[in-house]
Design a protein around this nucleic acid. Structure first.
Lengths: 299, 299
DNA sequence: TTCATATTTTGTCTAGGACAATTTTCATGC
DNA sequence: GCATGAAAATTGTCCTAGACAAAATATGAA
């Protein structure tokens, strides 16, 4: 029996959303305690989880709630396409295997094929596999986190490798409060590091208002933020607009993550909906020595 | 100009709390947009920050709001006592110095004095110093996080060191959703590791309901949770009670962190209000081989 | 003093209404 | 057929104002 707030944390939904779903769709229909406060039985929590998963697949609440329970699970089953090649090994390891085995496999792949391939050929597919199995409920959040930790650790180590030559550009990578997914941020930081940029990573979630000061303190040339699909795209938009307003206009903003897919234009914000765009972004905004660009701007 | 939700995230307060403060104490008194929605000017955000800081010092809202602005800052100034010994070096480094310098100093201290002293003589004082300066606003959250990251990295490395002999007890260390402070958890994990326990660390925040399954999957003997002062003690209590209910009674629960200070008793939950208690907890609950304890229980 | 009991304070909940932003539907023109 | 734009529906977040348990503080008796 969970309170509305516990459930809200559990599902990453606002309490208002839970209440209005009950009002509009008649579900969830929690029991009430002596005070009349909602108490959600665990079975309803499970049902709600499938609702959230379907929503992440792009379905909208009115459709989802119109479906029967079976129809919902059918859609979820169907959503897991079969994977193609040798990644099937990983699939089994992700679901049941030892996490340290995954780590070893990844590390040896890294030392043979390098970081860029590790990201595109291994880490991204693994994230996709995890997402698929999280959606159909076969992968516990806990396991997902343990594996994500390993991926994160490997990427973080890459940021510590020395640069071939002293970088003259700095990008600071961070997430805002409420954004729990940091792998996308880490991957982009690792890729920018590879391109010779000095990448500062803030691992914890920052309040929006601290960001401008931090960018100044670190004399960063750009701030990179990641917004996963948990962060509503409207919220991301608001935050980016506020940040653009508060931040020194000299300092660029790079926004990435799944919440940034939409044709969603913001003035003076570099959008990065795909890690593949990073070399292009680098070329366009960060290549050439800093002083020469300044000279060009002045000339 | 922030919306109520942005402010709520910024200050770690519920939106309901912000509204009821306005109703009861007449502050904050935000402007309203065309829809009548609250819009908080940045100056009010700063004032609210001092309110939150005072609250963290143990003052209660009705007293705080009765004070003038000057009285509040006076109390905050006064709250920063002078530090004693050689730690003053650290104080300067924390406020202005290079973070990598802090890292180097800590690492060399570690290699000379070992983990236990590092924690009690360096990490805990640093956390205290940071807390003090965060309270009076001289340390940005961003800087605090960068330094916390370093402390975290050092502690995490300790968990990777091999044990002198194969451990037969496993404790899984985790935080629940909404708990952003992980250093306390890390320190306790490092100390238990030192005592010969196999410590599994989940770095990301978990939904409460995933914990029982995870404890089973990892065949842990205990689950250790940390609740910082941001987590209201009432919430911590609720969560621990729920968890105790859902979890296999064989598996112990260890609860620590600042929210666990109060004379706050829960049946079958081991409370750890202080890292110094860890050896005692170890002796009481985890020493002796597992099989012998089981035999004793059976006999 | 120390305890037990009353009072105040505090945060979280309740209900039901409103509305901007987004998405979908539908009609129109090419 | 496809694009385009207006109209309708959907959705999440905000609003007000009232209620109450848990925690903190004050009060009084032993």
């Amino acid at each position: 029996m969970l309170t509305i707030q516990q459930l809200s944390q559990e599902l990453n939904l606002g309490v208002d959303t839970l209440r209005i779903w009950e009002r509009r769709y008649g579900f969830p229909k929690p029991a009430r305690d002596s005070r009349g406060h909602r108490r959600y039985p665990l079975e309803q929590v499970d049902l709600l989880r499938t609702v959230c998963r379907l929503q992440e697949l792009g379905h909208r609440p009115n459709k989802i709630f119109a479906l029967s329970e079976k129809e919902r699970t059918d859609i979820l089953e169907q959503a897991q396409q079969i994977t193609n090649p040798e990644l099937i090994n990983y699939e089994a390891l992700i679901l049941n295997g030892s996490v340290s085995k995954i780590e070893n496999k990844l590390r040896s792949y890294l030392s043979v094929n390098g970081l860029e391939q590790l990201i595109t050929e291994r880490i991204l597919p693994i994230i996709r596999i995890m997402g698929r199995h999280w959606i159909n409920g076969k992968l516990s959040i806990a396991r997902e986190h343990m594996i994500s930790d390993i991926l994160g650790d490997i990427l973080k180590e890459q940021l510590l490798l020395p640069h071939p030559q002293e970088p003259d550009r700095t990008i600071i990578f961070l997430t805002l409060c409420g954004e729990r997914h940091k792998l996308g941020l880490l991957m982009s930081a690792a890729l920018f590091h590879l391109l010779g940029i000095n990448c500062l990573l803030i691992q914890e979630e920052l309040p929006l208002m601290e960001v401008p000061q931090l960018a100044l303190d670190t004399s960063s040339d750009a701030v990179a933020l990641s917004f996963s699909s948990h962060y509503s795209s409207r919220q991301a938009k608001k935050d980016l607009a506020t940040l653009r307003n508060e931040l020194d206009p000299e300092i660029k903003i790079i926004a990435g993550g799944n919440a940034i897919q939409k044709p969603f234009h913001l003035p003076d914000v570099i959008l990065c909906s795909d890690l593949g765009q990073i070399p292009e972004i680098y070329r366009k905004f960060f290549s050439g020595s800093k002083s020469s660009v300044k000279a060009a701007a002045a000339g």
